[in-house]
Amino acid sequence: MKNMTQTETNQRRRTVFFLIVAVMILAAVTAAGILTEGCAVETDFSRRNLSPSLQHLFGTDWMGRDMLARTLSGLSLSIRIGILTAAVSAAAALLLGTASVVLGRKADAVISWCIDLVMGIPHILLVMLISLACGRGFTGVVAGVALSHWPSLARVIRGELIQLRQAPYILVAERMGVSKLQNVRRHMLPHLLPQFLTGLILLFPHAILHESSVTFLGFGLSSEQPAIGVILSESMQYLTTGKWWLALFPGLALVLVVALFALLGERVRRLLDPSSAHE
């Protein structure tokens, strides 16, 4: 057994470093967005439609609002919605997946049917419907996105649990007197962690994109709120008049955040997947 030198970089070190940096960037954007919320809605008609300059890095819009501040607070809002959605979806998926295994065959049939039902409806349509039903706005969007994204994760968890249930070490533990719930907690959930974590992180980009698109289509957040979807849809009418900065920067920023989350999920998967864990 030979230890390798401490200073050598390896996959684990690089991934953890990347993870910390990515989380810090996302946290910084979220915090900055909350702080700039005041500036984002501040109108000043003396500085209307300025193209990007040192003073206004992303330019200003037709009401003289600073686009950098608006972009930041929009992203911040998106990320917060993403976190909320991911949390709700994860909890729902975990609960249903576990219930599917613990409560027996009939419960499993009902849950599987629900999963298939929700998965059968296109996401965007479902998000729009729920959002409308909940009166749009922040609540509407969060409800819509959260209630439509859990099935994929729930299905993965259910499948894994059903396979795990037949694992010899779980059968043996049962004969040793370990109860069903304890078995789930001690022997099944730890094995699920890789799929769960990866699935969770990969929910973010989906949630964020769907939130923006629903808002863009006018079924989501109200137009007073500085959301990316609102910014993009408003900028559409000014694009033809040559005000390219109104759409370009917010759009790019959105793509970057989504890509960052997707990369994060992929990295975590590689780290936890046994077929590449020791790279």
């Binding site: 694992a167 010899p168 070490y169 043996v172 533990a173 001690r186 022997h187 730890p190 094995h191």
Partner: peptide, 8 residues
């Protein structure tokens, strides 16, 4: 090796 939890 199949009857002990590999993660514990």
């Amino acid at each position: 090796e199949t009857v002990v939890d590999p993660l514990l």
